[in-house]
């Protein structure tokens, strides 16, 4: 499936290390203007996927395309990349370093300087441009790292754990930048363990488990697809009152509160009627699982 519409397509990528299969036919595409959250346990294959997308690592099979075109060095140069292992020259001054990286991505000198000043201002490190990187706090080094991914005005963003190690203010700045880039039509792919952030920020989410893509879809859709959780507070209800209701599974009962899992065939009004038949009902709460619940279920 070739789009040719500005999307970043990761198409059936497989990577083996000896007998270990690190990635097994992983496919995902990030559409222009979309933020895609990439979620999975440590070692599931997020970083390997991203490194292959950047050409830092070679896949055994499969292809990565941008706008329908296989990603070669010239295409890669238009990607903004934040590697999982943060990397900058420790003794080089922040400003010189950002300008250098911008130039390596094809900007002319003057344009590189302007972009450095602009992003340093935006990310709150303008006062530190003449300091060597290793004189900065870890949080500020992280901001420099993000500036390094953005300074050449990339057409795609691939960020590996961009939020790890950031203070709350920096998290907000980072979130704003990602939203802004997406609004400008840039496909944004980022991985994170902070699922609440992913839920809040992303249009779609991709969950990878042990080298295989388990779920890819809109966050709301994925959450709905996993079913609904219903908590009923009916103190007089006898044990087993909800058994036999179609599409309903009893998850547990505690102090007259029963937690039920409803699939697509269940009707919550039938459940309410059954509960009322047992006596008074003090509570009846529908809960869509958070991404965190969902993730635990998928990964388990």
């Amino acid at each position: 499936m070739t789009h040719g519409n500005g999307a970043l397509e990761i198409d059936t990528i497989t990577k083996r290390y000896g007998d270990t299969v690190a990635l097994d036919g992983v496919s995902v595409d990030v559409r222009p203007g979309e933020i895609l959250g990439f979620v999975g346990s440590n070692g599931a294959g997020k970083t390997t996927t991203m490194r292959i997308a950047l050409g830092v690592l070679a896949a055994d099979s499969g292809q990565v395309r941008l706008d329908g075109r296989p990603v070669d060095l010239d295409v890669r140069r238009t990607i903004g990349y934040m590697p999982e292992e943060r990397g900058l020259y420790p003794k080089m001054k922040v400003g010189e370093q950002l300008t250098y990286l911008a130039e390596l991505h094809g900007l002319r000198r003057a344009a590189a300087r302007r972009a450095t000043a602009r992003w340093a201002e935006r990310l709150g490190i303008a006062a530190r441009l003449t300091d060597p990187v290793d004189a900065l706090s870890l949080g500020n080094q992280q901001r420099v790292q993000l500036a390094a991914a953005l300074v050449h005005d990339p057409a795609v963003l691939v960020l590996d754990e961009p939020f790890s190690g950031l203070d709350p203010v920096a998290v907000d700045v980072m979130s704003d930048v990602l939203r802004e880039k997406a609004r400008a039509g840039v496909p944004v792919l980022f991985s994170s363990h902070q699922l609440d952030l992913v839920q809040r920020l992303c249009d779609r989410v991709a969950i990878i488990v042990a080298g295989r893509m388990r779920t890819v879809g809109a966050v709301a859709e994925v959450r709905r697809g996993a079913g609904v959780r219903l908590e009923v507070h009916a103190p007089a209800a006898p044990r087993g009152w909800a058994d036999g209701l179609p599409g309903v599974t009893v998850d547990g009962t505690l102090d007259g509160r029963t937690t039920l899992l409803l699939d697509r065939h269940a009707n919550d009004q039938d459940v309410l009627a059954a509960a009322l038949a047992t006596g008074p009902v003090h509570g009846f709460t529908l809960r869509t699982p958070s991404l965190t619940d969902l993730y635990r279920e998928v990964v388990a």
């Binding site: 830092v56 060095l73 990607i79 990397g87 900058l88 020259y89 420790p90 390596l104 991505h105």
Partner: peptide, 12 residues
């Protein structure tokens, strides 16, 4: 310092 990964994503 791992900067090589950033460099090699843009130059040979």
């Amino acid at each position: 310092s791992r900067v090589v990964e950033l460099l090699l994503s843009t130059i040979r």
